[in-house]
């Protein structure tokens, strides 16, 4: 044991003295993973769930640092100027950073960040009270007759954005959007019949859906959710719709060297395939879907025009 330690120390000392920062020797010290929300939320839980497995594949400690505030804006602004040596990474729910860019003045641009890897994807679902419309067609008919009230987990949230896209593509003229802070409020209001429908992540409403108090009518995705196989997607009902992908993943600061990105991407991608991580993901009903660095970058580029189209509607007139 002591011998191993000595060898480790010698090797570490040797690398420190001998080489400048060079991809092949990465990483030689603990890596900081910034979470753009407080300890205990969804982003934080997923980061803490994957971190031990990333440690295993990188051979270095992964230290979580929570930087909540202004929906993550504070963290993004600081992250823009972090040295791109791969020792500081950020994890958040994409595309919230892009929405923040469109909501006010920002110094950062999400498209400048270096995408590493995303492990999970989530989609919005349209839910109604269990005692109201039985099918999506019935709902659509009612929605076209008079404006319904629809709950959102926040103005300018991804639920809002997806709601606006759906309205546009389904030909519904008007909805009275009612923004809440977080999904719990909008779901409670729907369960108490104060709202006509709510846009939310399926995972946020799962308890009341299972109990039959709420009914999911449509999942905004191109394929069904394995945890909720009964919820139809637009394709099943004959609609051709575009979606805003919601990804949980990790990014490096702007201009991170490609060899470091490769090492990190490999470590995160292997970590996401570990049984221990998959078990936690199943309990949290996360939809695991590996998105590599290049594909992640494409998703970032694709989302800008979609959000730009609805920019004016993200804030009220």
């Amino acid at each position: 044991m002591l011998k191993t330690l000595k060898i480790c120390a010698a090797v570490a000392a040797a690398t420190l003295v001998a080489t400048p920062v060079f991809g092949a020797d990465f990483p030689t010290k603990p890596i900081k993973l910034i979470v753009t929300a407080g300890a205990g939320g969804g982003e934080d839980t997923e980061a803490r769930a994957i971190a031990p497995f990333v440690e295993k594949h990188l051979g270095q400690q992964v230290v979580i640092e929570n930087q909540p505030g202004a929906g993550g804006k504070i963290a993004f602004e600081k992250f823009q100027n972090v040295t791109p040596d791969g020792y500081a990474l950020i994890t958040y729910t994409f595309p919230k950073s892009v929405i923040i860019e469109y909501q006010g003045k920002t110094g950062f641009k999400t498209r400048d960040f270096t995408p590493i890897f995303a492990w999970s994807r989530s989609s919005q679902v349209l839910v109604v009270n269990g005692e109201s419309w039985k099918t999506f067609q019935e709902f659509l008919k009612a929605a076209k007759e008079k404006p319904l009230s629809g709950g959102l987990s926040g103005r300018g949230s991804t639920t809002h954005l997806m709601g606006l896209i759906a309205l546009d593509e389904l030909g519904i003229d008007k909805v009275n959007w009612v923004p809440y802070e977080g999904s719990a409020g909008s779901i409670a209001a729907l369960a108490g019949k104060h709202l006509d429908f709510t846009m939310s992540l399926a995972t946020s409403a799962v308890a009341l859906i299972q109990a039959g108090k709420l009914r999911p009518l449509l999942l905004f995705s191109d394929k069904r959710d394995p945890h909720f196989p009964d919820i139809p997607v637009p394709k099943d009902l004959g609609y051709n719709m575009s979606f805003i992908p919601t990804l949980r993943g990790v990014e490096a600061p702007p201009k991170t060297p490609a060899d470091i990105v490769t090492i990190l991407e490999a470590a995160f991608s292997k970590a996401a395939q570990e049984k221990g991580f998959i078990d936690i993901a199943a309990k949290r009903k996360m939809v695991l879907e590996p998105v590599g660095s290049k594909e992640f970058a494409r998703a970032v580029a694709d989302v800008y025009p979609k959000i730009a189209k609805f920019q004016s509607m993200l804030t009220s007139k």
Partner: peptide
């Protein structure tokens, strides 16, 4: 952040009070 209208109020572009 005004939850209803989606505007920032009285923050003077200072992020720490946006919540």
């Amino acid at each position: 952040f005004d939850v209803i209208a989606g505007h920032l109020r009285y923050t003077f572009d200072w992020a720490p009070v946006e919540d």
